[in-house]
Computed example of a mutant assay.
Amino acid sequence: MSRPIKHPFRLVSGVAVAALLVLTGCTSNSPDSEASGDGGGGDTKAVSANDDPGDTVTIGFSGPAADHGWLAAINSSALAEAEKYDDIELKTAEGTNDPSQQISQVETFINDKVDAIVLLPTDGAALTDIAIEAMDAGIPVINVDREFSSPFAARATILGDNYGMGVSAGTYACQVIDEKGIEDPVIAEIAGIDALPLTQDRSKGFKDALKACGQTVDNRVAAEFTVESGEEQASNLLQAAPKIDILWNHDDDQGVGVKAALDNAGRDEMTFIGGAGSCNAMDWIRDGSMAATVIYPPTQAADGIKLARLIAQDKGLSDLVQVEVPKRIVLNAPVVTADNVDEYSDLCFES
């Protein structure tokens, strides 16, 4: 989901107590370092150089169908991360949106006796039982992005912060309103699919953050995470709102359509905020046609691969005192602006 970097501007959501965890090995921790007697135990797993070669482990990876730029990046980043390690043998299943097919894929991993499974489920609830079956077989499961419905289904879970995205976007909007001295601002929101919990979380975070500066969303429409729906819903929104001061679009893939609608209507009066962190968004920030985007890391499965390797090799995170990989990691949702776009552009994805 990367190297530690200093951010000239970062908004940390109230929920993002789960701060961004850097999962790369800490080179200051020598492989032959030993824990002192004052360190809380004799186990030295957490003070190894995690990227040093270890026992070869077989990891099974099952991800989504790559029918969306962010989802394609999830898959490609996982494959690229595994290739960095000579001690990983990766078994990949074909990307799918069919829970039944994904269940069969996990059954194959279990039968193959892989050492760990990294799974971004098409449906967390539907994949819960088979994930528990893997765990019962002694195969640790790393759950990515969409949570299972039981705590017994995963050894570790790594997530983006949907609520935190909304909080970051809303906090940035409040900052813009204050810096520009906008009175009675008109705030608009283009959500994703309203039936999805992730969309509901993003909208709630946005609404909650706006309360801090006494603001509310004046106009809201919901698209479907596609370019076509983004353009259609943005056009409807622009017709309903002759003036907009702040516009937050939840998803940079559908943002291609949103941007087309804005350009077609000649509407450039607003502060345009995106979501997820596409390469298009990074380019628009550079040329000034978008003010900011809020990151939803497309590298979660890559981090899942790293965690699976550590768990299968009986290691911990070398940057933590704790000797085991945490049970749950929630990645931060930082705001990318012209001030820090170059620091995030290497992690962008193609829409």
Rank of each mutant, 00 (worst) to 15 (best):
I5W: 07
K6T: 12
K6H: 08
R10Q: 11
G14K: 10
V17P: 01
V22C: 10
G40M: 09
V47H: 07
V47S: 09
A49N: 13
V57F: 13
V57P: 12
V57R: 12
I59D: 02
G63R: 00
A78L: 10
L79K: 15
A80E: 15
E81I: 07
E81Y: 06
E89M: 10
L90G: 13
P99A: 07
Q101C: 09
S104D: 12
S104V: 08
A116E: 03
I130V: 15
A134R: 06
G138D: 09
I142N: 07
D145C: 08
E147V: 15
F148K: 04
F152W: 13
A153N: 09
R155W: 02
R155A: 08
R155F: 02
T157G: 10
M165N: 10
T171A: 09
I177W: 01
P185Y: 01
A195R: 13
L198D: 08
L198C: 06
D201T: 03
L210G: 01
A212D: 14
Q215S: 05
A234H: 01
S235V: 04
A240Q: 14
K243P: 03
D245K: 00
I246S: 01
W248M: 11
H250K: 05
D251A: 05
D252I: 03
D252C: 04
Q254A: 08
N264M: 08
G266I: 05
R267Y: 03
R267T: 02
D268K: 10
D268N: 14
F272L: 12
G275E: 02
C279S: 13
N280V: 11
A281W: 00
A281M: 04
M282E: 00
W284R: 14
I285C: 01
R286D: 00
D287K: 02
T299Q: 15
A301Y: 08
K315L: 15
S318Q: 10
L320A: 03
I329D: 01
V330P: 01
P334W: 01
A338V: 00
N340D: 11
F349P: 10
